[in-house]
Computed example of a mutant assay.
Amino acid sequence: MEIKLVIFDLDGTLVDSLPGLAHAMNLVLAEEGYPLHPEESYRHFVGHGIKNLVFKALPEEAAREEALLEACHGKMLGTYGRDWDHALRLYEGIPSLLDALKERGIRMAVNTNKDQAITRKIMETAGTQPEETLYVGDTLVDVETARNSGAFCAAVTWGFRTREELEEGGVGWMVDRPLELLEILEGRKKTP
């Protein structure tokens, strides 16, 4: 197996955006007079886009009202668009990993909430085949994205989901620290 392209999920894989997402949605909830959620709750709200996050953060009866859901979704997009960098940080070890991949001549891309067709376009643009690609993410959505595109998958344990959740989804490789990805690329980590 020769990996020529590594596609990274963004949120929960490269960057910890949870504080900013929680901050922005809690501002929307406060404006609407709804209860706020602790930051940790947002770990389970993310993974299927902003609209899904809004749906999960709203009280159940409010989320079922389509007009209110749309209005809150619009407010969230505006609030997060303004405060997207609130407490945003790269995960420890990510800069070193990116440098190491660059030194090895491995192409890199970032994919966030994209469907199968977009993922395939990224591979075509990078000049690689799915079997030459490693998709790295932190949720089962990322695992499905890799499977649907025919790429290999590595799930990171420092992101928004627990190791147990990822193992239940039948993830190939589990990665506990960024530089461990190099072990996969060098063939030192057993193929799933």
Results as ranks from 00 to 15, higher is better:
P59V: 08
F55Q: 04
S41V: 12
L18R: 04
T139W: 10
D85V: 09
S149C: 15
G159H: 14
Y42C: 10
L98S: 04
A146H: 08
L14F: 07
E70Y: 02
A87V: 02
G159R: 14
A67H: 12
C72H: 01
N26C: 09
I118Q: 11
L27D: 09
L21R: 01
V136L: 13
P59A: 08
L166V: 12
V110F: 11
L69R: 05
R89I: 14
A109P: 02
D11F: 07
D176I: 06
E103R: 07
S41E: 15
G93W: 13
V46L: 12
G49S: 12
L182A: 12
E40M: 10
I7M: 11
L21S: 02
T119M: 15
T157Y: 07
S96Q: 15
R43I: 07
E103K: 07
S96C: 04
R188Q: 01
K56C: 07
M1W: 03
M1G: 08
E165K: 04
D99Q: 13
L21Q: 01
I7D: 00
L90N: 07
E2W: 03
K56E: 07
K75T: 03
Y80F: 14
R147D: 08
T191Y: 12
E144N: 13
H73S: 04
K102L: 08
I106Q: 01
K51R: 15
F160G: 02
A22S: 14
H48F: 12
L181Y: 02
P35K: 05
G127R: 04
L97I: 11
